[in-house]
Design a protein around this nucleic acid. Structure first.
Lengths: 228, 228
DNA sequence: AGTAGTTTTGACAATATTGTTAAACTGAAA
DNA sequence: TTTCAGTTTAACAATATTGTCAAAACTACT
């Protein structure tokens, strides 16, 4: 019988785990399709084809389309939170905090491009799922990477480490500069052909460029410096 | 009979034009829904409901879903090209060119948020439509705003007006900083509550912040200045 | 081999979605 | 009023999509 024994999308298949695990293959394929088409545009058949399995298995492991979507989204979201935040708190100088944030953020996005696109897709369609997760994460202080960075930015302004810029807008610019090029990669490639072959180098250049531009742009002008 | 007399999505309805024109209402509603759900996720019924008309009228005016999508996309794309490019060529100083570009770009996006989201959606799903239009526009020199700005950026580096930064990455950062906050508005509002009530002010702040940060970040350091 | 458990499959029902059609409607000109 | 072209509507057909089921296939263990 196909009752709710092991598989509920919870993440633990019992015996199988053959070539990569049926559940994982479903999960990855779902991410692939959801990231491109969104929750409504995605077709269960397309996900099944991409995973090279029978469509009924999607329902066997994840009940319904919406539960599959939620499972994929939740996993990626938590992974994002847990993967980036810790490293931010260890740095002392603002310059290092910024570098760690930009590098970590870009690394994550680079390694999880589809998850980033999925989140942006959520965003485009009003983002009820994203909004609820985001609100919850923001409720627990210190868990959300962006908030840690933003607080550090504020301290740096108060300490005179950087110019007295608008904190929120600066934070928004940092996130935009890191995130956008990757979610828009298909288009970016048209303008930026060298990203095609050697994405690794593009990533490194991107990190260096952003940190460099921001440090220059935020450097206190002579006369409004606070300390040393 | 419903042969291809007037309506083919070409943009000219004959007599009606009652409260806003049936065709225009379809067009606007299609943009609204396509921008959120994408071409595949959008439902004709949802578009018809939003326009408060019978679903069959969508087919009467635009034949099929794909032709409706293409019509919406093409209109917005051309509007974008023609609306921004001319003003870029009149400015002399780099600082002014940058300001005109950022202001014009943000103004356009602000006034056509849904079109911006539609384009990004195209981007997320591989962007075959966007890619073809973009390639065509890039083929005709001087028509595409981003290219004019990028050329001006290069000249400024060569003239020593700004630091010798990576042109493509800088251009990408400018576009990211202008575009991303608006396509991601639903999420941005969570972080940036003041954008809710007074979007106009947020827009102005955003313009000022970007131009300011870039001009500071690109200013030649003492000793590497070229002229005056 | 036999058994009990899970996994996988093909077929099915129910519903959703697109696109078409003929007929009803409208408003102005003959 | 009648006529005519364009517009709108409801109903229809064809297909697509989701979700379910029972049976088959597989696995580990006896």
């Amino acid at each position: 019988m196909r009752t709710e024994k092991t598989p509920v999308g919870s993440g633990t298949a019992s015996q199988p785990a053959e070539d990569g695990g049926t559940e994982k293959r479903i999960f990855d394929s779902a991410l692939h399709v959801f990231a491109r088409k969104g929750q409504d545009g995605a077709r269960m058949q397309e996900i099944a084809d991409h995973a090279q399995i029978n469509r009924a298995l999607l329902h066997y492991y994840f009940r319904s389309k919406s539960q599959l979507y939620e499972a994929v989204f939740e996993h990626g979201f938590n992974q994002f939170i847990s993967g980036l935040t810790p490293s931010l708190k260890t740095e002392q100088r603002f310059e290092d905090t910024l570098r760690v944030f930009v590098h970590g953020y870009i690394d994550y996005i680079h390694r999880h491009q589809e998850m980033a696109r999925l989140m942006l897709n959520e965003c485009l369609c009003g983002g009820p799922v994203l909004a609820s997760y985001l609100t919850r994460a923001l409720g627990e202080p210190g868990t959300f990477p962006g908030m840690v960075m933003q607080d550090r930015l504020r301290e740096a302004v108060e300490a005179g480490e950087i110019r007295p810029v608008d904190i929120e807008h600066t934070m928004l610019t940092i996130v935009s500069a890191c995130l956008f090029p990757f979610v828009a990669l298909p288009t970016v490639r048209i303008f930026h052909p060298e990203a095609e072959g050697d994405l690794e180098r593009f990533v490194d250049e991107r990190k260096r460029h952003i940190v460099d531009l921001l440090l220059e742009g935020l450097r206190p002008s002579v006369g409004e410096r606070g300390d040393g």
